[in-house]
Computed example of a mutant assay.
Amino acid sequence: MTFSAFTLRPYTEADEDAAIELWRRTWATHFPHIDFNSRVAWWRERWRQDLVPVTAIVVAECEGVLAGFMTIDQTSGYLDQIVVAPEHWGKGIALALVGEAKALSPGGIELLVNKDNLRAIRFYEKHGFAYAGEDKNPVSGIAVNRMAWKP
């Protein structure tokens, strides 16, 4: 595994546009059959209303460019997002972001992952998360796996 040189830091308001674009580009790469361009306004609203006010957000930068981020609700331990730019997949950023999530929520973490996102499921299992049952995505209604990490 090749690791990129990157730094982690807390999210700032100045990161919003880069984070929104990173989300769009990454999800569009992973699920090319879904029109994520049409979802940007919705995502920006969700980002501003549902995530920024209540989650800890850590970003990863490579050479001054946003390469990833994660959002975790420290009260509930719910990990809503880990997003890593496709050109940085497999380079250690997601692992570092999961490590930050575990440090910020040491009592445990839960997350939802699309059943067809086998890459993510394997990643989470490899790093201590276990299948914790069936669920539905609260936004799309799609069946998902609930996964949990307990220290």
Rank of each mutant, 00 (worst) to 15 (best):
L97N: 06
T71F: 05
E16D: 09
M70N: 13
G92V: 09
D50P: 02
T26Y: 09
R25L: 15
F36E: 03
R44L: 02
L95H: 14
T55G: 04
I20W: 09
S76A: 11
A41T: 14
I82S: 03
Q74D: 09
S38V: 06
C62E: 13
R24E: 14
G77M: 07
A28R: 07
V59K: 02
T71Q: 04
D50S: 14
A67L: 06
E16P: 00
P32T: 06
V58D: 10
L51R: 13
E45P: 01
A96E: 05
H30Q: 06
V84A: 04
A67Y: 12
S76M: 03
A85C: 08
F31E: 12
T55V: 06
I72Y: 03
W89N: 01
C62I: 14
T55D: 15
H88Y: 12
D35R: 06
T26Q: 11
I72K: 01
Q49F: 04
R25Y: 11
E45V: 01
N37S: 13
T75I: 10
T75H: 13
Q81M: 15
W47F: 14
G68Y: 03
V58W: 08
P53I: 08
H33S: 10
W43N: 08
E45H: 11
A67F: 08
S76P: 08
A41L: 08
L79V: 08
G92E: 05
A60H: 07
Y78D: 07
A94D: 02
L51T: 13
E45S: 10
R44M: 00
H33D: 10
L66V: 14
L97T: 09
W47I: 00
G68E: 09
R25D: 15
A67T: 12
W89D: 01
W89L: 02
I20Q: 10
R25H: 13
H88P: 04
H88W: 09
H30M: 07
R46Y: 15
E63F: 07
A96L: 05
A67H: 11
